[in-house]
């Protein structure tokens, strides 16, 4: 699938004059969601930046019907909405959760896990900016190792929780990772996901200039570097088949990856460890381990071999 930029809809899916910070990755991502899925969409948004980005009532800066909902309940509210649309014969409405990393991996995790286990027919997008940005940059379970936040002044001591892998373990039909640095890849994934019935999960990396401490002009660039350094592999898992996304394939080869320092040095949140080689080594090891896991998944869930399906059938 090749996307022609000129053919993407030029509607104001994000209304200018909203409350997002300059260079916000979330408004970028929301535009792509609507470009991919069109107007037959309702969004469910738990507490987070995207609840504020909408701006002040009676206006909203996100051009979509939205049910804002309490922090821990996004996947559940979406479940109910989908059930209602089905009861009313409106099966074609896409109910999309748009939740941050805290709303996904921490406080909203229980509801997410429940909805995934029940295979609810919703699309769940985690827009991952790797901390509680809306409350002022506090660590979440998805904050990466070493990152400064206002609750980890000397850097976080634990690695990032791997939510997409946890979702794969739920046996859902569709799990993908994406980055706002690669919009057409994200749009393609959304379009593929939209054709599948059941629970679909997309983990969207969303570098936050305010929380990661970089120049807002570099949002797309940082989002690309996360992929180019091998830190954030892009992949898709569909019905028991795992494959690296075309953009990410080359980074399987460590020599093709850009040095992680190029990614770290752009971000103030890593400033304190730039002169600590042992800390940088830990991040490099994390990348190696990530790719070992990817290789295992590629092997276990190789397309066409039906092995992934068998693995889950056997469980």
């Amino acid at each position: 699938m090749v996307i022609n930029l000129r053919k993407l809809p030029d509607k104001k899916y994000i209304m200018p004059g909203n409350a997002a910070c300059p260079g916000c990755p979330e408004t970028m991502g929301l535009r792509y969601v609507k470009m991919a899925l069109g107007d037959n969409v309702v969004l469910v948004i738990p507490a987070g930046c995207s609840s504020v980005i909408q701006g002040i009532s009676p206006y909203s800066g996100i051009n979509a019907p939205i049910l804002n909902i309490v922090f821990a309940a996004a996947a559940s509210a979406a479940t109910g909405m989908k059930a209602a649309f089905e009861a009313m014969g409106k099966d074609d409405v896409h109910v999309v959760v748009w939740a941050g990393d805290g709303g996904t991996g921490d406080i909203g995790f229980q509801a997410l896990s429940g909805a995934a286990e029940r295979d609810e027919d919703i699309i769940y997008i985690c827009v991952d900016n790797e901390a509680y940005m809306n409350t002022g940059i506090q660590r979440s379970s998805l904050t990466p190792y070493g990152a400064w936040t206002t609750t980890t002044w000397k850097g976080k001591k634990e690695h990032k929780k791997n939510i997409p892998m946890i979702l794969i373990s739920h046996g859902v039909k569709y799990v993908a990772t994406a980055s706002v640095g690669y919009p057409t890849d994200f749009i393609e994934k959304l379009q593929r996901a939209s054709k599948i019935k059941g629970f679909r999960y997309i983990h969207l990396l969303a570098p936050c200039p305010v929380g990661w401490r970089f120049d807002p002009a570099l949002t797309a660039k940082v989002a690309q570097l996360a992929v180019e350094t091998g830190l954030f592999p892009l992949y898709e898992y569909i019905n028991g088949e795992f494959k690296l996304s075309p953009i990410a394939k080359r980074y399987k080869d460590p020599s093709k990856r850009k040095p992680i320092i190029e990614y770290l040095k752009l971000q103030g949140r890593y400033r304190h460890l730039l002169d600590k080689p042992e800390e940088i080594k830990k991040i490099e090891e994390y990348i190696e381990n990530t790719w070992k896991l990817i290789e295992t998944l590629e092997e276990s869930f190789a397309p066409g071999k039906d092995r992934g399906k068998k693995i889950f059938d056997a469980l």
Binding site: P16, S57, P58, Y59, S60, G61, A64
Partner: peptide
């Protein structure tokens, strides 16, 4: 189809936390 609710205007003083998409929300 046709199983949706009847949308009926409130008959008391009513302000709900509702918005519609528009430019310049801030």
């Amino acid at each position: 189809m046709g199983k949706g609710p009847i949308l009926q205007a409130p008959e008391t003083f009513f302000i709900a936390p509702l918005s519609r998409p528009a430019p310049g929300s801030v």
